[in-house]
C-alpha cells in the first residue's frame, strides 16, 4: 500500500537529511506506529506520503501511484484516497461539526444526497451522533479530534495518516482515540500513526517503526516503545 525505497529528503537550507536512505513497506490493512523523538523524521515521512513534499531521491509509491512521476494535477486524486489527522485538529471554527465533515465531501464535488447519507453515518461511527450542530469550540479536545477523524474517513480512504493525533490530549482520551483508530483499521483502512507517546504504542502492541535522525533503527511487529530517558 505504501512503499518507500531508498528515500532521502533534504529540506532546502538544511545541512542534515530529514530522512536518510529510508526503505519501508506497509501492506494493505496494516496498523503501523512510527515512533521516535522530535526531529527524527516522522512528520517528513507522512508529508512525503501525502505528497506535500517531494523526495530528494528515491521512490515513494502510495496506493499504486508513483509519487515521483506524478504531476501536480494528479495530486488531488491521490489525496482523495487518503485521510490525514493532525495534532492541532485543523477544524474550521465557524462551521458546525456536521459542516466540518461535510466540507471535505463538498470540495471534492460529492452530490448532496450522498453527503446527507455519509456525514451522519460517520459522526455516529466516531461517537459524535447528536453533536452535529455544535461548533468546535463547544467540544472537548477529544471530541474535536473525533471530528477531525470523521472528516478524514468520511470519503472512505484506503489509508489514514495520523501525525501525533494524541499530542494535545490527556492519557484516557488518547486511549479512546487510538481505540477508535483501531476500529477504523479493522474495517480495512491502512493506518500509519506517528507519535512519541509510548503509552498508546504499548497499549496496542502493533508494528513499530522507529526513526532516529532520519534513519530506521527498528522495525518490529507487535512491539513496544520506550523513550530514552536522558
Amino acid at each position: 500500500m505504501i512503499r518507500f525505497e531508498n528515500v532521502t529528503k533534504v529540506y532546502p537550507k538544511s545541512a542534515r537529511a530529514a530522512l536518510d536512505d529510508v526503505t519501508l513497506g506497509i501492506d494493505r490493512g496494516e496498523f503501523v506506529f512510527v515512533v521516535g523523538p522530535s526531529g527524527s523524521g516522522k512528520s517528513t515521512l507522512l508529508r512525503l506520503a501525502l505528497r506535500e513534499e517531494a523526495a530528494t531521491s528515491g521512490d515513494v509509491l502510495v496506493a499504486g501511484h508513483d509519487l515521483k512521476s506524478m504531476s501536480m494535477r494528479q495530486v488531488p486524486r491521490l489525496r482523495r484516497e487518503m485521510g490525514a489527522v493532525f495534532q492541532d485538529f485543523r477544524l474550521l471554527p465557524g462551521k458546525t461539526v456536521y459542516q466540518n465533515v461535510a466540507y471535505a465531501l463538498h470540495v471534492i464535488g460529492k452530490p448532496s444526497h450522498l453527503i446527507r447519507q455519509l456525514v451522519p453515518e460517520t459522526l455516529e461511527m466516531v461517537g459524535l451522533g447528536g453533536k452535529g450542530g455544535r461548533l468546535p469550540h463547544q467540544l472537548s479536545g477529544g471530541e474535536q479530534q473525533r471530528v477531525a477523524i470523521a472528516r478524514a474517513v468520511v470519503n472512505k480512504p484506503q489509508i489514514l495518516l495520523c501525525d501525533e493525533p494524541t499530542g494535545n490530549l490527556d492519557q484516557a482520551i488518547s486511549f479512546d482515540i487510538v481505540r477508535l483508530l483501531d476500529r477504523i483499521n479493522r474495517t480495512g483502512t491502512t493506518i500509519v500513526l506517528a507519535t512519541h507517546d509510548q503509552d498508546i504504542v504499548n497499549d496496542m502492541r502493533r508494528r513499530v517503526v522507529q526513526l532516529d535522525e532520519g534513519q530506521i533503527v527498528r522495525d518490529e511487529a507487535e512491539a513496544t516503545y520506550h523513550r530514552r530517558t536522558s
Binding site: P76, E81, A84, P93
Partner: peptide, 17 residues
C-alpha cells in the same frame, strides 16, 4: 488559509480551490 489547507488535504482540485 485554513479552508485552503483542508481543501488541499482532502484532495480538492485546483479549480475547486
Amino acid at each position: 488559509r485554513r479552508e485552503i489547507g483542508i481543501m488541499r488535504l482532502v484532495g480538492a482540485s485546483n479549480w475547486t480551490i
